[in-house]
Design a protein around this nucleic acid. Sequence first.
DNA 1: TTGAAAGCGATACCAC
DNA 2: GTGGTATCGCTTTCAA
Lengths: 337, 337
Amino acid sequence: MNGSRGSQPTIVDVAARAGVSKSAVSRVLSGTGRFSDETRERVERAAAELGYVANAMARGLVSGRTHTIGMLVRDASSMLYTALHAVMEQRASELGYRVVTTTGVGRVEDEKSALASLVSMRVDGLVVCSGLLPSADIAEFAPRIATVVAGRPELHPALSSVYCDEVDGGHRIADAVADAGHAVVVVLTVPLDNAITQHARSTAMAGRLRGRGVTAIDIDASFVRPADDIAADVVDVMRESGATAVMCPTDRLMLDVCDALAKRGVSVPSDVSVTGFDGVYPLANDWIGFTTLQQPVDRIGREAIDLVIGRIDDPGRAVEHRSLRGTVLPGRTLLRR
Amino acid sequence: MNGSRGSQPTIVDVAARAGVSKSAVSRVLSGTGRFSDETRERVERAAAELGYVANAMARGLVSGRTHTIGMLVRDASSMLYTALHAVMEQRASELGYRVVTTTGVGRVEDEKSALASLVSMRVDGLVVCSGLLPSADIAEFAPRIATVVAGRPELHPALSSVYCDEVDGGHRIADAVADAGHAVVVVLTVPLDNAITQHARSTAMAGRLRGRGVTAIDIDASFVRPADDIAADVVDVMRESGATAVMCPTDRLMLDVCDALAKRGVSVPSDVSVTGFDGVYPLANDWIGFTTLQQPVDRIGREAIDLVIGRIDDPGRAVEHRSLRGTVLPGRTLLRR
DNA sequence: TTGAAAGCGATACCAC
DNA sequence: GTGGTATCGCTTTCAA
């Protein structure tokens, strides 16, 4: 069967065309073993003429390696994951690996199946970037596949991880607010089961504020709540308490809240100061001017890849947890009182 | 060999544990053929106990189908591709397909190899989302794999495509500027070889302006030029010509230009009106207030998936080109003169 | 140096 | 219903 119909040419087609055995083709194309220049030339020409692309499945099936790292992201439209994705892709390619990405579409079940799908592809390593999936579901595969959790604090004993120090970050941005002289501050908090990272940072913010004698008022910012409802609460609380600042667990929510506040006649920052968290392009930009905590996304992504590949090369390597500190990105949305 | 070491359990391990043949396991797990309840129960239990995940490579090798759609994106950090990605993932999962994504890291060579890597995985279909890769490189695989180009006008006779009507979009946003009474307008133009889409839209903008008697002044906005240099040119041209508006080929560039202009003491929109193109979250947001042309990303993504899957199911299906119209998203950055 | 043959893990078609 | 067996496309011994 030659490539005349729909199917892809195989190594046998190339061998026939080149007039050599399929073993020879395999050696030439994978650059292993010995072969004459003549053989090499014939094989390469035949392969090119046929538009031959090796079947990674067959190859992986026998070699047991795919040179591929699977990346699970929570939400393809989140700028943070998107930024991580870009960094990892870059770093992996420097190290001779390919990255394939899958995502759940928001529900835990989907993420589980997305992860299983990566496992079924027998990727050499796994990088999980999702604050949603429970540790246990990830750890299940860790004994068999090099696995690293990126972007969330994950202290499971079987999983390595690289993440932004959420507590430190929450403290720093809270310090910025306290330093600016705000005495009553609204903190939008996210429940633990919504997103581990966001819960951690909002808790840290509120804690630090209180530790500094600032009155911190929590408002529930569960994912199910429309930003508009949250903004309504913020307005009410501001009226009752005289709060002068609002701290958000993400830049994204910050944007929605600013928008909703504006529609209720409350303008940022003249009526109220607002801070965010994440600090990823494009929202982290002077012109937009968000005051936020910038996560060290470049380092997180790069080190995550280095960690997985390290474990691929040496499965016995010890589990590591790397906590990286972010920095406050000053902007126009936080005013001195 | 059981799963005690690093390797994953196979169908043989499951069969042994369940005390049945591997054929039986295959039938139960894939739900095809007949089997008794007793068999099913034993197999399912054994599989669960072993944490068995079928090897997609072995499966794909024999079945010839992977139920996977490969998506090539230009740049994982571009918001437009990111938005497309999310929509496609969603739609594909509704239709029982998995999406795996790879990206080049900016260079054509990388994109070619990313594409080849998708082909080597023998994905059932291919969606190419990149304004960078030349048609010929994509078309090469089209006879063998269902291929659709999304997000760029692609009229190659072997490739189906879905895209935003760039010319219409350029006209509409230019009309908005002309309608607002601007008589001299700067258009940031991108060369054809930088990005086909951006070239098309900027050309359309300038053309329409001139057609309406507006003076359009082109400024080169090649990718290699820093936004700051572009902004410097804009300031010079404004001074010489009295231009009152700047049209950008993307929201992203618009953001950078606004920023650079602000740093030169030119504020938007009081000193100069600015428009963008793309209209994707998070920049398309009332609070940020960009006046831009919003691409119909949801429809593009959805229809791209429907097209590939259509061609997977029926390879003989005719090539289609769907041009979808965008809409002007009014904002605060375009002022009446 | 080269080719023949034995798998890799799953499916599908076979008799039983 | 069930279990053997050929097969998918490739890498990898092992002889020649």
